[in-house]
């Protein structure tokens, strides 16, 4: 089907050549387009940061070069490794619980009409509720320990899985169900051959969102529940006003979250290569 794009020229590309030819020379064009502009903006931002951070009267912001050196040092020396593993361990445990519980509950609420009408409003309310308000009682209920943190992460992440799984299950194309039925699929084979594959992309979206929420939840737990791991790293730097370490730690933590989300996205895409991406 390579020719399909060749067929309908007018639909693919309706910009006539004449308009394009007015673009500046290729270097100028590159600098003003896409990556060139991005690069320029990053350079400008870092330059502004450097200039602002280097002013003697500014103490809250360390210059970029100091922060970068600190970042390199903490990564290369392995000083950041242990706190990172600690935070990630909490995030992972909470995420796994959320995944298992979320998929099961999502299937139940998606398949049963009664559960859908009665539990949906509650799940939606819990989805938007700020679960961190439970932090003061988690110590009473679970304990001020790793289990308490895992519980907080679980609560932060689970509703994303439930809501997306049940949305996927209920949006199964009725035509497909009918087709499968006409070929004799009943109960279990219907679940396995139609409902599960159909809802898989939705479940994966839920799981990807849960990855992000789990990391955020773990950091909140490490800052607010009991100071430990990356949370302690940041708070110690902050309380001693060691700004270059604090900023390096923040940059590291944010990049860590970004990297994990990108990873989750890649995993999701590779698992779902049969389906064209339809979100974002």
């Amino acid at each position: 089907m390579a020719g399909k794009s060749e067929l309908a020229v007018e639909e693919i590309d309706a910009r006539p050549v004449r308009q394009r030819a007015s673009a500046p020379g290729w270097l100028g064009g590159w600098l003003l387009s896409g990556w060139g502009l991005r690069l320029l903006s990053v350079v400008a931002l870092l330059a502004a940061w450097q200039w602002y951070g280097s002013r003697p009267e500014v103490f809250a912001v360390a210059p970029f070069t100091d922060v970068f050196r600190e970042l390199l040092e903490m990564v290369l020396s392995g000083r950041i490794l242990e706190p990172t593993i600690g935070t990630l361990a909490i995030a992972t445990q909470g995420f796994l619980w959320a995944a298992v519980v979320g998929i099961v509950v999502g299937f139940v609420t998606g398949l049963s009409k009664l559960a859908r009408t009665t539990l949906d409003p509650l799940i939606n309310a819990l989805y938007t509720a700020p679960v961190s308000m439970l932090i003061p009682v988690i110590g009473i209920w679970i304990g001020l320990n790793v289990r308490g943190k895992v519980f907080l992460v679980f609560l932060t992440a689970v509703f994303a899985v439930i809501a997306n799984t049940s949305a996927g299950v209920r949006e199964v194309d009725p035509n497909l169900v009918e087709t499968a039925r006409s070929f004799g699929a009943r109960r279990w084979s219907l679940y396995r051959n139609v409902i599960l594959p159909w809802s898989a992309p939705f479940i994966l979206i839920g799981l990807r969102l849960a990855v992000g929420r789990a990391i955020r939840g773990a950091i909140v737990a490490d800052i607010l529940l009991i100071t430990d791991n990356l949370g302690r790293f940041l708070l110690e730097a902050g309380s001693t006003f060691n700004m270059s370490v604090l900023l390096a730690g923040i940059v590291f933590t944010m990049l860590l979250g970004y990297a994990l989300m990108e990873l989750a996205k890649k995993v999701e895409q590779s698992l779902m290569s049969w389906k064209p991406s339809q979100y974002e």
């Binding site: 003003l32 387009s33 896409g34 990556w35 502009l37 991005r38 903006s41 990053v42 809250a60 992000g212 990391i215 955020r216 950091i219 909140v220 800052i223 990356l230 940041l234 708070l235 730097a237 902050g238 006003f241 700004m243 604090l246 900023l247 730690g249 923040i250 933590t253 944010m254 990049l255 860590l256 979250g257 970004y258 989300m261 990108e262």
Partner: peptide, 29 residues
């Protein structure tokens, strides 16, 4: 397009990154 090209990386980064990590810095600011 230009505006998007410039801002997109920052917005995406901030969107998925853990904003909670900024708390100790914001409190100093």
């Amino acid at each position: 397009r230009k505006f998007r090209h410039v801002l997109e990386p920052y917005v995406n980064l901030m969107f998925v990154a853990s904003m909670e990590a900024l708390l100790p810095f914001l409190i100093i600011l």
